[in-house]
Protein backbone atom coordinates (compact mmCIF):
# COMPACT_ATOMS: atom_id res chain seq x y z
CA UNK A 1 0.00 0.00 0.00
CA UNK A 2 2.82 2.43 0.85
CA UNK A 3 4.02 2.46 -2.73
CA UNK A 4 0.79 4.08 -3.96
CA UNK A 5 0.14 6.43 -1.00
CA UNK A 6 0.55 10.16 -1.65
CA UNK A 7 0.93 12.91 0.96
CA UNK A 8 -2.28 14.66 1.92
CA UNK A 9 -2.69 18.16 0.56
CA UNK A 10 -3.15 21.25 2.72
CA UNK A 11 -6.50 22.95 2.65
CA UNK A 12 -7.85 26.09 4.22
CA UNK A 13 -4.80 26.72 6.32
CA UNK A 14 -5.26 23.56 8.39
CA UNK A 15 -2.03 21.64 8.09
CA UNK A 16 -2.15 17.88 8.56
CA UNK A 17 1.33 17.92 9.95
CA UNK A 18 2.48 17.11 13.43
CA UNK A 19 -0.47 17.83 15.68
CA UNK A 20 -0.18 16.48 19.19
CA UNK A 21 -3.93 16.34 19.77
CA UNK A 22 -4.44 14.22 16.64
CA UNK A 23 -1.65 11.88 17.59
CA UNK A 24 -3.18 11.36 21.03
CA UNK A 25 -6.59 10.65 19.49
CA UNK A 26 -5.05 8.22 17.02
CA UNK A 27 -3.34 6.23 19.75
CA UNK A 28 -6.55 6.18 21.78
CA UNK A 29 -8.34 4.87 18.68
CA UNK A 30 -5.82 2.10 18.16
CA UNK A 31 -5.90 1.24 21.84
CA UNK A 32 -9.68 1.18 21.84
CA UNK A 33 -9.93 -1.20 18.89
CA UNK A 34 -7.27 -3.44 20.39
CA UNK A 35 -9.18 -3.48 23.65
CA UNK A 36 -12.40 -4.13 21.74
CA UNK A 37 -10.82 -7.21 20.20
CA UNK A 38 -9.60 -8.51 23.55
CA UNK A 39 -13.00 -7.91 25.14
CA UNK A 40 -15.13 -9.43 22.43
CA UNK A 41 -12.89 -12.35 21.49
CA UNK A 42 -11.03 -13.37 24.63
CA UNK A 43 -13.16 -12.15 27.50
CA UNK A 44 -16.82 -12.00 26.57
CA UNK A 45 -16.43 -14.79 23.99
CA UNK A 46 -19.02 -13.31 21.69
CA UNK A 47 -16.64 -13.30 18.76
CA UNK A 48 -16.97 -15.73 17.11
CA UNK A 49 -20.58 -16.02 18.27
CA UNK A 50 -21.83 -19.26 19.76
CA UNK A 51 -24.37 -21.18 17.72
CA UNK A 52 -27.65 -19.62 16.75
CA UNK A 53 -29.47 -22.90 17.34
CA UNK A 54 -28.51 -23.58 20.94
CA UNK A 55 -31.05 -24.91 23.39
CA UNK A 56 -32.11 -22.92 26.45
CA UNK A 57 -29.92 -25.09 28.69
CA UNK A 58 -26.89 -24.53 26.47
CA UNK A 59 -27.49 -20.79 26.54
CA UNK A 60 -27.69 -20.75 30.33
CA UNK A 61 -24.51 -22.84 30.38
CA UNK A 62 -22.76 -20.33 28.09
CA UNK A 63 -23.38 -17.53 30.57
CA UNK A 64 -22.48 -19.73 33.50
CA UNK A 65 -19.20 -20.84 31.91
CA UNK A 66 -18.05 -17.36 30.99
CA UNK A 67 -19.64 -15.43 33.84
CA UNK A 68 -16.43 -13.94 35.19
CA UNK A 69 -14.77 -12.97 31.93
CA UNK A 70 -18.01 -11.48 30.59
CA UNK A 71 -18.36 -9.36 33.70
CA UNK A 72 -14.77 -8.15 33.42
CA UNK A 73 -14.77 -7.67 29.65
CA UNK A 74 -18.07 -5.92 29.19
CA UNK A 75 -17.62 -4.09 32.46
CA UNK A 76 -14.49 -2.53 31.00
CA UNK A 77 -16.39 -1.75 27.81
CA UNK A 78 -18.97 0.22 29.77
CA UNK A 79 -16.17 2.55 30.84
CA UNK A 80 -14.03 2.44 27.72
CA UNK A 81 -16.82 2.92 25.17
CA UNK A 82 -15.80 6.57 24.94
CA UNK A 83 -12.96 5.35 22.76
CA UNK A 84 -15.52 4.73 20.03
CA UNK A 85 -16.44 8.40 20.08
CA UNK A 86 -12.80 9.34 19.61
CA UNK A 87 -12.35 6.76 16.86
CA UNK A 88 -15.32 8.22 15.01
CA UNK A 89 -14.23 11.74 15.79
CA UNK A 90 -10.81 11.42 14.25
CA UNK A 91 -12.23 10.14 10.98
CA UNK A 92 -14.87 12.87 11.09
CA UNK A 93 -12.05 15.38 11.53
CA UNK A 94 -10.41 14.05 8.38
CA UNK A 95 -13.75 14.46 6.62
CA UNK A 96 -13.85 18.13 7.61
CA UNK A 97 -10.69 18.53 5.53
CA UNK A 98 -12.48 17.25 2.45
CA UNK A 99 -13.88 19.58 -0.17
CA UNK A 100 -17.40 18.18 0.28
CA UNK A 101 -19.98 19.85 2.49
CA UNK A 102 -20.17 19.44 6.25
CA UNK A 103 -23.39 17.46 6.00
CA UNK A 104 -21.25 14.41 5.29
CA UNK A 105 -19.37 14.92 8.55
CA UNK A 106 -22.55 15.32 10.56
CA UNK A 107 -24.13 12.22 9.00
CA UNK A 108 -21.00 10.21 9.70
CA UNK A 109 -20.96 11.24 13.35
CA UNK A 110 -24.67 10.70 13.92
CA UNK A 111 -24.76 7.31 12.18
CA UNK A 112 -21.89 5.98 14.27
CA UNK A 113 -23.31 7.45 17.48
CA UNK A 114 -26.55 5.60 16.83
CA UNK A 115 -24.58 2.55 15.75
CA UNK A 116 -22.80 2.26 19.08
CA UNK A 117 -25.99 0.96 20.64
CA UNK A 118 -26.79 -1.99 18.40
CA UNK A 119 -23.15 -2.35 17.44
CA UNK A 120 -21.84 -3.24 20.86
CA UNK A 121 -23.64 -1.66 23.81
CA UNK A 122 -26.81 -3.69 23.56
CA UNK A 123 -24.74 -6.87 23.48
CA UNK A 124 -22.72 -5.71 26.48
CA UNK A 125 -25.72 -4.66 28.57
CA UNK A 126 -27.66 -7.85 27.83
CA UNK A 127 -24.69 -10.04 28.69
CA UNK A 128 -23.97 -8.08 31.86
CA UNK A 129 -27.61 -8.39 32.90
CA UNK A 130 -27.53 -12.13 32.26
CA UNK A 131 -24.35 -12.59 34.30
CA UNK A 132 -24.99 -10.19 37.16
CA UNK A 133 -28.51 -11.49 37.77
CA UNK A 134 -27.87 -15.16 38.47
CA UNK A 135 -31.44 -16.22 39.27
CA UNK A 136 -33.02 -15.25 35.99
CA UNK A 137 -35.69 -17.38 34.36
CA UNK A 138 -33.89 -19.39 31.59
CA UNK A 139 -36.39 -18.01 29.07
CA UNK A 140 -35.30 -14.49 29.98
CA UNK A 141 -31.66 -15.52 29.69
CA UNK A 142 -32.39 -16.87 26.24
CA UNK A 143 -34.03 -13.59 25.30
CA UNK A 144 -30.96 -11.63 26.43
CA UNK A 145 -28.78 -14.04 24.44
CA UNK A 146 -30.86 -13.55 21.30
CA UNK A 147 -30.85 -9.76 21.62
CA UNK A 148 -27.09 -9.81 22.12
CA UNK A 149 -26.31 -11.53 18.88
CA UNK A 150 -29.15 -10.32 16.72
CA UNK A 151 -28.13 -6.75 17.46
CA UNK A 152 -24.38 -7.33 17.36
CA UNK A 153 -24.27 -9.27 14.09
CA UNK A 154 -27.51 -8.16 12.51
CA UNK A 155 -27.55 -4.41 13.05
CA UNK A 156 -27.31 -2.62 9.76
CA UNK A 157 -29.22 0.54 8.89
CA UNK A 158 -26.98 3.01 10.66
CA UNK A 159 -23.82 1.35 9.41
CA UNK A 160 -25.06 1.22 5.83
CA UNK A 161 -25.68 4.97 6.11
CA UNK A 162 -22.24 5.44 7.65
CA UNK A 163 -20.41 3.52 4.95
CA UNK A 164 -22.43 5.10 2.17
CA UNK A 165 -21.71 8.61 3.34
CA UNK A 166 -17.99 7.95 3.82
CA UNK A 167 -17.69 6.30 0.40
CA UNK A 168 -19.55 9.12 -1.30
CA UNK A 169 -17.50 11.76 0.50
CA UNK A 170 -14.23 10.10 -0.52
CA UNK A 171 -15.31 9.84 -4.15
CA UNK A 172 -16.46 13.45 -4.33
CA UNK A 173 -13.57 14.90 -2.33
CA UNK A 174 -11.21 16.97 -4.43
CA UNK A 175 -8.61 17.28 -1.68
CA UNK A 176 -7.79 13.57 -1.82
CA UNK A 177 -7.87 13.28 1.97
CA UNK A 178 -8.37 9.57 1.50
CA UNK A 179 -7.41 7.73 -1.71
CA UNK A 180 -10.30 6.85 -4.00
CA UNK A 181 -9.79 3.12 -3.57
CA UNK A 182 -10.75 3.47 0.09
CA UNK A 183 -14.24 4.47 -1.05
CA UNK A 184 -14.56 1.13 -2.77
CA UNK A 185 -13.28 -0.81 0.23
CA UNK A 186 -15.98 1.04 2.21
CA UNK A 187 -18.64 0.02 -0.31
CA UNK A 188 -17.70 -3.62 0.28
CA UNK A 189 -18.75 -3.08 3.90
CA UNK A 190 -22.22 -2.08 2.71
CA UNK A 191 -22.56 -5.37 0.87
CA UNK A 192 -21.47 -7.44 3.86
CA UNK A 193 -23.73 -5.40 6.12
CA UNK A 194 -26.71 -6.24 3.90
CA UNK A 195 -25.86 -9.93 4.00
CA UNK A 196 -25.93 -9.79 7.80
CA UNK A 197 -29.66 -9.04 7.70
CA UNK A 198 -30.76 -12.68 7.29
CA UNK A 199 -29.46 -13.56 10.78
CA UNK A 200 -32.90 -12.70 12.08
CA UNK A 201 -34.33 -15.56 10.03
CA UNK A 202 -31.78 -18.35 9.98
CA UNK A 203 -30.55 -20.26 13.02
CA UNK A 204 -28.16 -22.44 11.03
CA UNK A 205 -26.23 -22.21 7.82
CA UNK A 206 -24.16 -19.46 6.24
CA UNK A 207 -26.66 -16.72 7.08
CA UNK A 208 -26.96 -17.37 10.79
CA UNK A 209 -25.23 -15.07 13.25
CA UNK A 210 -22.18 -17.32 13.33
CA UNK A 211 -22.53 -18.22 9.66
CA UNK A 212 -19.64 -18.24 7.22
CA UNK A 213 -21.17 -15.45 5.14
CA UNK A 214 -23.07 -13.30 7.63
CA UNK A 215 -20.38 -13.39 10.30
CA UNK A 216 -17.01 -14.69 9.11
CA UNK A 217 -16.70 -13.05 5.72
CA UNK A 218 -18.24 -9.82 7.00
CA UNK A 219 -15.88 -9.68 9.97
CA UNK A 220 -12.83 -10.47 7.85
CA UNK A 221 -13.64 -7.68 5.42
CA UNK A 222 -14.42 -5.31 8.28
CA UNK A 223 -11.03 -6.04 9.83
CA UNK A 224 -9.31 -5.13 6.57
CA UNK A 225 -11.39 -1.96 6.28
CA UNK A 226 -10.64 -0.83 9.82
CA UNK A 227 -6.89 -1.47 9.52
CA UNK A 228 -6.76 0.51 6.28
CA UNK A 229 -8.77 3.38 7.76
CA UNK A 230 -6.54 3.63 10.81
CA UNK A 231 -3.45 3.46 8.61
CA UNK A 232 -4.72 6.20 6.29
CA UNK A 233 -5.54 8.52 9.20
CA UNK A 234 -2.05 7.99 10.57
CA UNK A 235 -0.54 8.78 7.19
CA UNK A 236 -2.47 12.05 7.14
CA UNK A 237 -1.44 12.99 10.66
CA UNK A 238 2.25 12.25 10.28
CA UNK A 239 2.85 13.61 6.79
CA UNK A 240 4.56 17.00 6.97
CA UNK A 241 2.32 19.82 5.77
CA UNK A 242 2.78 20.53 2.05
CA UNK A 243 3.31 24.09 0.91
CA UNK A 244 0.49 25.21 -1.40
Amino acid sequence: MTATVRPAPVIGGVAPGDRLDLRICWWITVGFYGLFGVIFVLLARVMPPPGADLSTEQIVAFYADHRTTIKIGFGILMVAIGGAAIASGIVAYEMTRMSVGKVFVYTYIVSLSVGALPGCLLAAICCLTATFRADLDPQVTELLFDITFLSFVGSLGCFVANYSILALAILLDENEVFPKWMAYVTIWQIVTELLAAPVFIFRTGPFSWNGVISFWEGTALFGIYMMLLIRLVRRNITTPAAVS
Binding site: A3, K180, W181, Y184, W188, V191, I213, L221
Partner: peptide
Protein backbone atom coordinates in the same frame (compact mmCIF):
# COMPACT_ATOMS: atom_id res chain seq x y z
CA UNK B 1 3.74 -7.03 -7.02
CA UNK B 2 1.75 -3.83 -6.64
CA UNK B 3 1.23 -2.50 -10.18
CA UNK B 4 2.52 0.95 -10.94
CA UNK B 5 3.45 3.19 -13.83
CA UNK B 6 2.52 1.73 -17.20
CA UNK B 7 0.88 -1.22 -15.56
CA UNK B 8 -1.82 1.16 -14.39
CA UNK B 9 -2.83 2.12 -17.93
CA UNK B 10 -6.07 0.22 -17.61
CA UNK B 11 -9.44 0.98 -19.20
CA UNK B 12 -11.20 3.55 -17.07
CA UNK B 13 -9.86 3.76 -13.58
CA UNK B 14 -7.45 1.54 -11.64
CA UNK B 15 -9.48 2.20 -8.50
CA UNK B 16 -12.63 0.95 -10.16
CA UNK B 17 -10.73 -2.16 -11.30
CA UNK B 18 -9.61 -2.75 -7.72
CA UNK B 19 -13.25 -2.51 -6.69
CA UNK B 20 -14.44 -4.75 -9.50
CA UNK B 21 -11.84 -7.45 -8.94
CA UNK B 22 -12.54 -7.32 -5.21
CA UNK B 23 -16.24 -7.78 -5.87
CA UNK B 24 -15.51 -10.72 -8.16
CA UNK B 25 -13.56 -12.42 -5.39
CA UNK B 26 -16.23 -11.61 -2.79
CA UNK B 27 -18.87 -13.14 -5.03
CA UNK B 28 -16.59 -16.10 -5.71
CA UNK B 29 -16.70 -16.80 -1.98
CA UNK B 30 -20.51 -16.86 -2.12
Amino acid sequence: MVPSGEDLDVPGSINMWLFVVGELFIFAFY
